[in-house]
Design a binder for these strands. Structure first.
Length: 441
RNA sequence: GUCCCUGUAGCUCAACGGAUAGAGCGCCGGCCUUCUAAGCCUGUAAUGGAGGUUCGAUUCCUCCCAGGGACACCA
């Protein structure tokens, strides 16, 4: 989740800086985890006497939850049922006929669910890559380089990372299946063919950082052009109140659950006067997404974050909703003033600006350099901090000076311009973070 | 055991080697007959420990302590 949100924000930031971005997503649709999930879900269906026909009618969230449960179950029983689950895994790799029906069904369930998440979070991919389509290529490439880059060991094909100060990893198992690292050898060339990148940024959890070092080393030995072009943005882990979130063990907060909790909290804040039920729903949805995204983006991507449902996703203070609220407040003022940028002439003001007005001016102009810095350092959090500072500075101004009741016509015009500028910069910042704005809330 | 990352108010986060270490949450006390109180103002409190480099260290180096992660057939 955090990688999805961060990746989208970075893509937008890079694009704003003039880069061409190709959004790629890589999904694991083959391998032991799939076998475990399928094995688990079959078991669950058996126990609960759920026929497939009935299951097919469930909605995407319910199907996804079943898959999650199946995966947890498969992991729990892997020790006892190792032989049978491994057998299933082998069949899946071989695309054995008797497994394809259930495989295709559950794969669709999973992809549909991810698709719904992508839509909901406003992200899109130029291309989805699947393990199943790179597995064979990867295996071939590894085998072709066996003896020089890769070595045979105990029936497996390995890469001896120690020569390069790294560690050894298996690329093809004894059973002849390419591992995640083996598949990566097939993925990289395919990606390069689709989009000859200068830099391929893998936005992936920090626990895989040693893994990536090995994979990148192997890649550049196979093909020099990858040297310096592959990069791992080592994302900090999300810790769940002391425990580590893990889909294997089922210690997770689902996105659906999280969002519905936040929506409940938001619904109490929304003033229902003058808003249609549809508008209120929209405010809840956009507000909830904003709250979640902002809470993930506001910290350095490399740092671990502690996640706590109660306090992490804040609706006030340094939060997404605070920015939305400030934006909506600005827009409300502009609406009341019937403000049109074309109606206001830029003219010099002889009067002195107040401290609060100067503070806004001194901050707002920095937007461009902040965006650039965020792009250079891969730190969307800088934009969060900037937008929050600006909103806070504006709110301080708002409480000490009236825009509509300004002392003179000139002051009012200037303050309207200031308000419009703040709204625009906040909106631009949020847009770079992948957060939608609301005109009213 | 080896390697990597991280230790800043009670909690969650900031601070190109530079000024009085900033915010948010929490807690204290204020502010709505006036543009949206999801807001504003006030108070409270911190650099894990010991050395070193430097005019100057939260920032760089060494060691220690604590937490997290990785370390061959998972992804």
């Amino acid at each position: 989740m955090r990688t999805l949100i961060t990746g989208e924000a970075l893509a937008r930031i890079f694009e704003a800086c003039g880069a061409r971005v190709f959004r790629a997503n890589y999904q694991g649709d083959v391998g032991p985890h799939v076998a475990k999930a399928i094995w688990g879900i079959e078991k669950i269906f058996q126990e609960r006497a759920i026929p497939w026909k009935q299951a097919q009618k469930l909605n995407v969230q319910e199907k996804a939850r079943l898959l999650g449960e199946g995966y947890v179950r498969g992991n729990q029983e892997y020790e006892q049922q190792k032989d049978r689950i491994d057998e299933l895994n082998r069949k899946l790799y071989e695309r054995a006929k008797d497994t394809m029906s259930i495989y295709k069904k559950t794969r669709t369930w999973s992809l549909d669910y991810f698709d719904s998440i992508y839509k909901r979070f406003g992200t899109r991919f130029d291309k989805l890559y699947f393990e199943s389509e790179v597995a064979d290529r990867g295996k071939k490439i590894v085998l072709k380089n066996r003896g020089n880059i890769f070595q045979e060991s105990n029936g497996a094909v390995i890469f001896e990372g120690e020569k390069y100060g790294l560690h050894t990893r298996v690329f093809i198992t004894q059973d002849g299946h390419p591992t995640y690292e083996g598949k990566e050898m097939g993925l990289a060339p395919m990606q390069y063919k689709d989009f000859p990148f200068d830099l391929n940024i893998h936005v992936v959890a920090s626990e895989q950082s040693a893994y990536f070092q090995v994979v990148f080393k192997a890649l550049e030995l196979i093909d020099e052009k990858f040297k310096g072009r592959e990069c791992h943005l080592s994302m900090g882990m999300v810790q769940l109140v002391g425990k580590k979130m893990s889909s294997r063990t089922g210690v997770v907060i689902t996105i659906d659950h999280l969002l519905s909790e936040i929506k409940t909290l938001l619904s109490r804040l929304i003033k229902n006067e003058g808003l249609t039920p549809a508008e209120q729903k929209r405010i809840q949805e956009i507000g909830a997404i904003a709250a979640v995204k902002y809470s993930m983006l506001r910290v350095d991507p490399k740092a671990d974050v502690m996640f706590d449902l109660k306090s992490s996703v804040s609706l006030e203070g340094d939060s997404g909703p605070y920015l939305l609220y400030t934006y909506a407040r600005c827009k409300s003022i502009l609406r009341k003033a019937k403000f049109r940028i074309s109606n206001v002439g830029f003219r010099s003001h002889k009067e002195h600006f107040s401290k609060e007005e100067l503070d806004i001016l001194r901050l707002a102009y920095r937007f461009e350099e902040i965006v650039r810095e965020a792009a250079e350092k891969f730190e969307p959090n800088l934009i969060c901090g900037f937008a929050f500072d600006l909103a806070q500075t504006y709110n301080t101004f708002y409480h000490s000076h009236s825009v509509l009741q300004a002392e003179t016509k000139e002051k009012q015009e200037f303050r309207l311009l200031l308000t419009a500028a703040v709204a625009q910069v906040i909106s631009n910042s949020l847009s770079l973070l992948g957060i939608q704005t609301l005109e009213k809330m």
